[in-house]
């Protein structure tokens, strides 16, 4: 499943806000088709790093490319090849499920026909035929998150960025959500995900843990557990996070 193609590549990527170093010289690579877990305590710099990779922020120094495009110069091109879903809500509450799909399909340049086909397919797969005409605001959170993820990958992006996609969602829905993530990787999409749930970290192919703006550890979950001599990702995380000097 994993190819050798690198879709995200950073070298000493740094972002400062005034005196504050939010992201401090991080270097890593993500391979195509991988599920890459991006962990860290609140305030560790995850969101800032993710925003740089999505083309929302310009880095202060260092290098980074996403889907082969440079984050400094080609951020508009990056945007065409990624999908994005955030913990804060990613759908419009006063549009119906269908209208949301049409809108996101539209802004990612799908044709009317594609939107219709893919939209129907998506609604069918989620089993939401009855809810298609309902306003998103009236649906339960778990459903919203599933629709949100589905619209984020509707245009078959190379990479999808998920910023705590399962925050506040029940365990069953979370499990189903991860099934959807696996399906997405099967179709060749690379997944870059941040989470606070350590069981979800176990589902990732590789995990990086950020502490105070730097990447303190990066490996497969099994190797990390071995390296830190503990039997769970939670153990690994706690050992690293305790070193943090920065507050929230």
């Amino acid at each position: 499943m994993l190819s050798q193609e690198t879709v995200i590549k950073t070298h000493n990527l740094t972002k400062t806000f005034g005196d504050f170093i939010a992201v401090n010289a991080i270097t890593f690579e993500v391979k195509a088709g991988e599920i890459f877990g991006f962990l860290g305590a609140n305030g560790a710099g995850k969101t800032t790093a993710m925003r740089i990779l999505c083309g929302l922020l310009s880095p202060t120094s260092g290098e980074a490319s996403v889907a082969g495009y440079d984050v400094y110069k080609e951020n508009e091109s990056i945007k065409k090849h990624i999908g994005y879903m955030s913990q804060k809500f990613s759908l419009f509450e006063n549009l119906t499920v269908k209208e949301n799909i049409e809108f996101f399909g539209g802004i990612y340049g799908l044709s009317r026909k594609e939107i219709k086909e893919k939209g129907n397919d998506l609604i069918h797969r989620l089993g939401m035929e009855k809810e298609a005409e309902k306003l998103v605001g009236s649906l339960p959170l778990g459903w919203k998150q599933k629709i949100s993820f589905s619209t984020a990958i509707l245009h078959q992006p190379k990479i999808v960025f998920l910023d705590e996609p399962t925050g506040g969602v029940d365990p069953i829905t979370r499990r189903q959500f991860w099934d959807m993530i696996y399906e997405a990787t099967d179709s060749g999409i690379t997944v870059f995900v941040t989470t606070h749930y350590m069981d979800e970290a176990e589902y990732c192919n590789r995990v990086s843990i950020m502490v105070d703006g730097t990447i303190s550890a990066l490996d497969t979950p099994n190797n990390l557990k071995h390296q830190f001599e503990t039997d769970s990702m939670e153990g690994v995380f706690l050992k690293l996070a305790r070193q943090a000097k920065r507050g929230e």
């Binding site: 083309g55 929302l56 945007k79 955030s86 802004i107 990612y108 340049g109």
Partner: peptide, 14 residues
């Protein structure tokens, strides 16, 4: 406020 602005900004729209 709702966070949807971020979604719009990561879209290919300028």
């Amino acid at each position: 406020e709702k966070g949807t602005m971020e979604i719009l900004l990561v879209s290919p729209m300028r």
